[in-house]
Design a binder for these strands. Structure first.
Lengths: 142, 142
DNA sequence: TTTCGTGCAAACCCTTTGCATTTGC
DNA sequence: GCAAATGCAAAGGGTTTGCACGAAA
C-alpha cells in the first residue's frame, strides 16, 4: 500500500507510513483506536485525527474497506486480504470471519426479488457464538 | 403496549403514553428523533432523554427491538408487528423491508457451518436500491 | 407519602473540522 | 517555496447520566 500511495503522488510522512503499516500488519480487521494505539507507542505525537484522515484516504483509494457494525464499532480491513464478513457475538464481542461464498445465494436472491444491489462486503451479522450460546443455555438451567 | 406497562406496575405518565402510542402508530420502524418530533408537537415540554429512556424500557421488556444499522442510525420496531429486516440504500437512505423468509437459508447455514446463532431480527443490509443503482449507471455513462 | 419518572444540563463516545504550523517534495 | 499533511482544540451528532424537582400511586 505504501508504494501505491507514493506512486499516486501522496506524500510519505512518517505518520502515514506507520499508520499504513499498522493497517497492513493488523489482524484482518482493526478500528481507528487500535491503529492509533499501535502507532503512538513508537511515535508518541501522532494525533488520532491523522489516523482517521489516513483511513479515510485509504478507503477512498479502495485500499481498505470500512464496515460500520453499529454501536460505535467501525472496522477497517485491507482489500487485498480478500473479502469476508463478520459474525459478531453480542455477548463476548468475538469476531468470526465468514467466507464470502456463504452469502452469495443471499445476494442473488436480493437482486432477483428486491432489485437491491447488496453490498455484502460491508456486512456484520449480530448473534451469539457457540461458546456464549452454551453459557446462556447453562445459566438458564440454573 | 400501554396496558401491558400498566399491568407490570409502571406508572402511566402522559409522556410515556404519548411515546408508546407514537411507537405503536409509527410505520414499522422509527428512530428516537422521529418519535420525539411527533410527541413534542402535542406536548412541547417532553425531553428527548425521556424518549430514550422509554424506548430502552420497551426494549428491556421485549416490546420493541432495537436495530443499530450503523452510521448513527438506530431503529426501533414493535415486536408484535412481526419480524423483518431492512435493506438500506447507501445513496438515498431508503429503507426496504425484507421478508424474514429470505434469510432463513442463511440462518440455517450459519448455524450448521459456523455454530453461530445469528440474530437476524437485527439485521440491516447496506447496498444500493434500484433507483439509485440506475442513477449511478447513468452518471457513469456521462 | 414515597417511590418513580421527568426535565435540564452536562458529559459521553467516536468522529470530523477549522485553522495555524510544519513538512515533504 | 508551495501545496499538502499534521497537531491541536473545538465542535459535532447521537445518546446517556446525575441530580433536584414533580407527579403517579
Amino acid at each position: 500500500m505504501v508504494s501505491k500511495l507514493a506512486e499516486l503522488g501522496y506524500r510519505m510522512t512518517p505518520q502515514r507510513l506507520m499508520i499504513v503499516t499498522a493497517v497492513e500488519n493488523a489482524a484482518d480487521h482493526t478500528s481507528a483506536e487500535e491503529i492509533f494505539g499501535q502507532v503512538v507507542q513508537k511515535y508518541p505525537n501522532v494525533n488520532i485525527s491523522t489516523v482517521y484522515r489516513t483511513l479515510d484516504l485509504l478507503e477512498e483509494l479502495h485500499m481498505v474497506t470500512k464496515t460500520d457494525l453499529g454501536s460505535g464499532s467501525v472496522r477497517y480491513h485491507p482489500v487485498d486480504k480478500g473479502h469476508h464478513h463478520h459474525l459478531v457475538c453480542r455477548d463476548c464481542g468475538a469476531l468470526i470471519n465468514l467466507d464470502e461464498s456463504v452469502l452469495e445465494g443471499l445476494k442473488h436472491d436480493l437482486l432477483r426479488d428486491y432489485k437491491f444491489n447488496a453490498d455484502l462486503q460491508h456486512l456484520g451479522i449480530l448473534g451469539r457464538c457457540e461458546r456464549c450460546e452454551r453459557n446462556v443455555a447453562r445459566s438458564e438451567n440454573t
